[in-house]
Computed example of a mutant assay.
Amino acid sequence: MQKTILRGVLPVGVLLALLACTNPAMPDRSDGAAFFAENCVSCHGTGGRGDGPLANVVSEAPSDLTTLSQRNGGTFPAAQALSFIYGGPYSDGHLARIMPQFGPVMADDLVPVEIDGILTPTPRELAGLLEFLKSIQE
C-alpha cells in the first residue's frame, strides 16, 4: 500500500520541485492583466465584457468574461476556461473558434496550478490570466 502511495505522490512531488527550481515566482493577477491587455482587449474589451473594438467585426460575439462564475453556478470554471484559452476541447464539444489558441507557443514555461483539486502543469501566462479572470468576476 505504501509503495502505491509513494508511486503516485513521488512523480507529482518531483514535478513540483523541478517547477519550483526553474520558475521562481508564481504568476498573479497583474501578470494576467498584462497578458489580457496585450492579447484579449481587442475583442473582450478592457473590462472583459465582450465590448472591445473588434467585437462587432468578428462573426461570433465575444463572451462577457465577467460572468463566467455566474454562468457556472457561482464557481469560477477554471478547467473550462483553461481548456478554451489553451485551445483544447471544452464542455460543449464545439471546436470551431475565432479566438486564437495560445497553448502551443507556451508549453515550455509551466507552473503548477490547482484545477479542480489537481495540481496541473499550466503555461505561466495562462496561470496569470486565470488569476486575472477570477478577479473580474461579478
Rank of each mutant, 00 (worst) to 15 (best):
Y86E: 13
V57F: 08
L65A: 10
P89V: 14
Q80A: 15
V57C: 03
A79H: 14
E60G: 05
G47D: 12
P53I: 13
S91P: 14
F76C: 00
G88C: 09
N72H: 14
P77F: 03
S91F: 15
E60K: 14
F76P: 00
D92C: 05
L65D: 12
N72T: 07
L82E: 02
G88P: 02
I85L: 09
G87P: 06
G73T: 07
P62S: 08
S83C: 02
P89C: 07
S91N: 13
I85S: 01
N56W: 09
Y86I: 12
Y90H: 14
T75G: 01
T67W: 06
L68D: 10
S69L: 02
R49L: 04
T67L: 15
G88T: 15
F84H: 14
D92S: 13
D92M: 04
I85R: 00
A81N: 00
D64Q: 12
A78W: 01
S91G: 08
D92N: 14
G88H: 04
G50K: 04
G50T: 01
Q80R: 12
T67R: 15
G74H: 05
Y86Q: 09
S91R: 15
T66P: 11
P89A: 12
S63H: 11
D51K: 06
S83N: 11
Y86S: 11
N72R: 10
A61N: 13
S59D: 11
I85A: 06
I85C: 02
D64T: 13
G87L: 06
Y90A: 14
L82I: 02
Q80F: 10
L68P: 03
N72W: 06
G50F: 02
Y90E: 06
G74P: 05
Y86G: 08
N72M: 07
V58S: 05
D92Y: 05
D64F: 10
S91Y: 15
G47Q: 14
L65K: 07
N72S: 15
G87Y: 09
Y90C: 05
P62C: 05
P62A: 03
T67V: 14
S83Q: 10
S59R: 11
L65W: 06
A81M: 02
P89D: 09
P77V: 05
T75M: 04
L68M: 15
F84L: 09
T67M: 12
